[in-house]
């Protein structure tokens, strides 16, 4: 229970989300509570259509909930409506995304893919380059920093994407099937890396996954079923 004493980074209370109205109404999430603390690495599990992506997108401030209350990194961002107008700035500063497919910009080399988010956050060119190089070295893809994404292997590209997600030192890292495109060995390496990052940056990581082989790499597993979290806040491992 040591985790309970650390800061709650993601706090969700009474969150519901439905798409459409009337006959076409889909209740993707129903009255859901969730707290994730600094340093935690948690998994969202569940069958297809259970609302995992919806939940991740809501935490990422990409999809607007129907009702509920959300605090991110101590700041109340949603209370039945968005409380901030500049959600992109919020994402830039507080949230890092890792995708199933790396989603690197194909026209920028590895280093600039990382540097671009630093530039967007207002860092100077040289500073962004320096920090991007540092991050790539840290993720052990420094040697590929001048390569275009098309020339990187799946594992290398995923690590560049992770470097990009970390660039602005976000406290929340969201990952949708981060290891789906990797073999099990690479998947294990990426997960270990994510754990290390969470610990070192005092950040939390929320990942959607179907990959049973990596379940043991998570602190907690949340099972989603029909828009509800099974068993209160999941199993504390």
């Amino acid at each position: 229970m040591s985790g309970q004493t650390r800061d709650a980074i993601v706090e969700i209370r009474g969150l519901s989300k439905h798409y459409g109205e009337g006959h076409t109404r889909v209740d993707a999430l129903r009255d859901l509570d969730l707290t994730v603390r600094a340093g935690e690495v948690v998994a969202l599990l569940g069958p297809s259509g259970s609302g995992k992506t919806t939940l991740l997108n809501i935490i990422g401030c990409i999809v607007e909930p129907t009702v509920g209350n959300i605090r991110l990194d101590g700041e109340e961002v949603y209370d039945n409506r968005w409380l901030r107008g500049d959600l992109r700035r919020l994402r830039l500063d507080k949230i890092g995304f890792i995708f199933q497919f790396h989603n690197l910009l194909p026209f920028l080399n590895a280093r600039d893919n990382v540097a671009v988010v630093l530039r967007l956050a207002g860092k100077s060119g040289p500073e962004a380059q320096r920090r991007a190089t540092e991050l790539l070295d840290y993720l052990e893809v420094g040697s590929r920093k001048d390569s275009m994404p098309a020339l990187l292997s799946g594992g290398e590209a995923q690590r560049v994407a992770i470097a990009r997600a970390l660039a602005n030192s976000p406290r929340i890292i969201l990952a949708d099937e981060p290891t789906a495109a990797l073999d099990s060995k690479r998947a294990g390496i990426v997960m270990d890396l994510l754990r290390k990052l969470a610990a070192e940056h005092d950040a939390c990581i929320i990942a959607v996954t179907h990959d049973e082989k990596i379940y043991d790499r998570f602190d907690r597993l949340f099972h989603l079923r029909d828009g509800r979290l099974d068993g209160a806040e999941g199993d504390q491992k």
Binding site: I62, R89, L92
Partner: peptide
């Protein structure tokens, strides 16, 4: 979409 997601204005 990726640019928007990572916070580009």
């Amino acid at each position: 979409a990726t640019l928007k997601l990572i916070g580009a204005p």
